[in-house]
Write a protein that binds this DNA or RNA. Sequence first.
DNA 1: TCCATAACTGAACGCGCGTTCAGATCAATG
DNA 2: CATTGATCTGAACGCGCGTTCAGTTATGGA
Lengths: 204, 204
Amino acid sequence: MARKTGSHSEITGPKIQAAALRLFSQHGYAAVSMRQIAADVGVQAGAIYNYVPDKQTLLSELLVSHMEALLASLDPGPDDPIQALEAFVRHHIAYHLPRPDDVFISYMELRNLTPDNHATVSGLRQTYEATLESILAEGVAAGQFHVPDAKIASYAIIALLTGVVNWFKPDGRLSAEGLADEYWQMVAQLVGLQVANGGDSPAG
Amino acid sequence: MARKTGSHSEITGPKIQAAALRLFSQHGYAAVSMRQIAADVGVQAGAIYNYVPDKQTLLSELLVSHMEALLASLDPGPDDPIQALEAFVRHHIAYHLPRPDDVFISYMELRNLTPDNHATVSGLRQTYEATLESILAEGVAAGQFHVPDAKIASYAIIALLTGVVNWFKPDGRLSAEGLADEYWQMVAQLVGLQVANGGDSPAG
DNA sequence: TCCATAACTGAACGCGCGTTCAGATCAATG
DNA sequence: CATTGATCTGAACGCGCGTTCAGTTATGGA
């Protein structure tokens, strides 16, 4: 054998993913060229094709791996719907806040996926949304939550939570934890729970 | 004078705006070519330049006119924060539901605006958001609303409300009014109001 | 040291892009 | 009906796109 497999590959490969993620998030998939990604990595455009078959696959892999990592990070959570909802809310914020670029492309570049890739990513997303919906449905059935419709409420809550990456700046007055506290209060109230003002999560 | 000014212009001009709006919303600004827009209108690409100086201006005008129309449609509303919030929620949904394409491009194509155009549109958007924020702030000051932070709550509520266009289908079980009812219940609870809901008692 | 080969370069390919413009077309005016 | 100018066509411009590939470079095992 000569040269160890992937001596640079282990560096350049991830660099390409990272550059593509940032550039797609910043300017949009269609507006970013392979040459721009290559320049960002410090390489010629042709070199990218040692790592990725084409531009479309590059985008698709970013979305799929984000959604799979998000799902893998999901804890089954407590049985009690209230606790489960709080855990979901806090986890959603904690997971998404450090990954604004992933959130951006996951919600904005879906339409640039080929039908096959779109179906894959949509399926993963629906799995995630269904997790929240079932928590809500259980809480409604148990008389703990009061929302007009569990599915609509799950859409509303996810939109509300995901929107945080649009304005949050890590150097602002709020820490990630403080932010999660505030969002949990709002979500708890949204589903009809009483929340101690300015305080912690509801007892239980 | 020969031919009356704008004999076709009055047709083709709006057709271009409409086609651009739909195509930008569907595929994204960068992914849509002037030739595609022209084909959709039934004209050659060059003809577009009788109506629009360039592609960037075409996008910018769509965003600006949407935001200006949205602001113009805003009623000052009742003095009471609760009534004002309800009016804001219902109006937001009623205005946005029939205009999903405007909503899409207004939130997804901001980054494709030149700095000047971006500043203009952002300014209009901030005016809109400030309307909600001041309603919330007044309600908090009056002890009617209980949210951790008026500004964050306004972001959350707008994200929640705007998300509706991502899933709403006009032929589903819900009418626009029924939908507004459900969203108003959720928002009312989010800000800490008690909402009568089919006879169940308030939680807690 | 030699050399197999992973990693990369740099040029090239056909193509579609935004935009321009000279000339054709067409409908209302005089 | 002839004229006029708004409207539109169709070809062209330079350019950058995604992708390919023959050839160059660099690395670590033999």
